[in-house]
Nucleic acid binder design. Structure first.
Length: 414
RNA sequence: CGGAGCGUGGUGUAACGGCUAACAUCCCUGUUUUGGGAACAGGUGACUCCGGGUUCGAAUCCCGGCGCUCCGACCA
């Protein structure tokens, strides 16, 4: 893409109503727009990155047998009353509204109720199980206070997967597979080294749930990390009983701030019981379906990646989620020689394929402005590889290749 | 939900109760320049968040509202 065709602009200074690093940098670089507190729009660059994150999650969910669907954001009050989660006393961050006829509806903050209810149309027999279904959905949560940029919004994108199994044993096997898929996701997003499988409260149907916590000072959670075993315990359940249960010693645990980037939950028969999702076994006996839910927020992940990968100059995207693979920066000369060579190089680069056979995405800075401005913007946008073409490099029939992360420079013949 | 702070051109800031609300940046014109946000000249752009009040006079003081930020609480 030519930068002269990109409608977004970079800006020197962050708006004063943002303090969070992720929002400051993403706004300055033109990735997102703040609509109001806790609600952000994604602009072309930001949407490219968000979609890359979404696709990585999609691939991993498909790899464990997940089937993608899309549920409604509007929620039917009756289903939530059945599970006793409609009342504002039980769930305090509902967004609710009314239809013209006066009926109340909610905006979904999660989707256990509708998907459990929906599955009653499709799961009747033990032969219909297992099922794992997931979606990418805009969730709404009426948070008391929005904060931390896109780490915690009132409207945000979430991937939620729900599993349906015959019994506890089958559920546990799937749960473990899902956990491994989550670990692969964070690895691919460049967060693997900083993300810990964290034990957290499990609710009424299992002893623990597992959170995926990425170490960051911007995080809202406090966890205790065991570096050697690569696991952690959330502060909420950090007590002697839990430590003994997990075979951990308090002295080995280090307190850290972290961002919760994922959470997987065993639900048991909490929802299948209350909403009536059951199957007939081989003997014709009716049994409740055993469920699990598995959440990841792609937009929160994008913010987390920024918190982890950035410096004083701007963003530093991992290859896997960068909006473009290459930033071609052309330093024009008066004679137009560089412009001509850069145009040709741009077309050539766009026709090349990466290791996976996909076209290489190139952002071409073809603007007529000074070198300093181009470099500063390039640093800010944070594409991992920068190709600089100028009269100087052309004299040697080459381009300068600079790595955004390491700053390492090498010349490449063209 | 408790506590604190802040609302001034698109953005970031300034202005004692007193002149036509200032500066930088962005944007537009032209000249020049092209390896780290260059230079010069000219120009556009603000009912100082909204509504009341005090005053000869309010961006400035008072009251109410709305919005934003921070600390804490909450966070399936």
């Amino acid at each position: 893409m030519k930068q002269t065709n990109l409608f977004t602009k970079t800006r020197r200074e962050a708006p004063k109503d943002e303090v969070a690093k992720n929002a400051q940098l993403l706004i300055r670089a033109g990735f997102i727009h703040k609509e109001m507190a806790g609600a952000y729009s994604f602009l072309p660059l930001g949407l490219r990155t968000l979609n890359k994150i979404v696709n990585i999650i999609r691939e991993e969910m498909n790899s464990i047998g997940g089937q993608e669907l899309h549920l409604t954001a509007l929620q039917d009050k009756q289903k939530w009353e059945a599970s006793d989660r409609w009342s504002d006393k039980v769930v305090d961050n509902w967004f609710k509204t009314t239809l013209k006829n006066g009926s109340e509806v909610g905006l979904g903050f999660t989707h256990e109720e509708p998907i459990t209810s929906l599955m009653k149309d499709h799961i009747r027999s033990f032969r219909d199980l297992p099922v794992a279904a997931y979606q990418f959905q805009t969730k709404f949560r009426n948070e008391e206070r929005a904060k931390s940029g896109i780490l915690r919004g009132r409207e945000f994108l979430m991937k939620d997967l729900y599993s349906f199994n015959l019994d506890e044993k089958a559920h546990q096997e799937f749960y473990e597979k899902a956990k491994q898929a989550y670990i692969r996701i964070f690895d691919r997003l460049g967060l693997g080294n900083d993300t810990y499988v964290t034990f957290a409260g499990g609710g009424s149907f299992s002893k623990y749930s597992h959170e995926f916590q990425t170490l960051s000072e911007a995080g809202e959670d406090t966890i205790y990390v065991h570096e050697g075993k690569r696991i952690a315990v959330n502060k909420e359940v950090f007590n002697d009983e839990v430590l003994a249960d997990l075979g951990l010693s308090k002295s080995d645990m280090v307190e850290k701030k972290a961002i919760e980037v994922g959470n997987i939950f065993s639900l048991g028969t909490r929802f299948s019981d209350t909403l009536g999702l059951a199957y007939k076994d081989a003997e014709g006996k009716s049994n409740p379906v055993v469920m699990g839910s598995y959440g990841i927020g792609p937009s929160r992940l994008m913010g987390t990646i920024v918190e982890r990968w950035s410096d004083e100059k701007g963003l530093i995207w991992p290859d896997s989620v960068s909006p473009f693979a290459v930033h071609l920066v052309a330093l024009f000369d008066a004679a137009g020689i560089v412009k001509k060579a850069a145009d040709e190089l741009y077309i050539k680069l766009c026709s090349q394929k990466d290791a996976n056979g996909r076209p290489i995405d190139v952002l071409y800075d073809d603007r007529d402005c000074g070198a300093g401005e181009k470099f500063s913007d390039s640093d800010l946008i944070g594409i991992p590889k920068r190709y600089v073409i100028s009269a100087k490099t052309l004299a040697d029939s080459s381009v300068e290749v600079k790595d955004r992360l390491t700053g390492k420079v090498e010349m490449m013949k063209i």
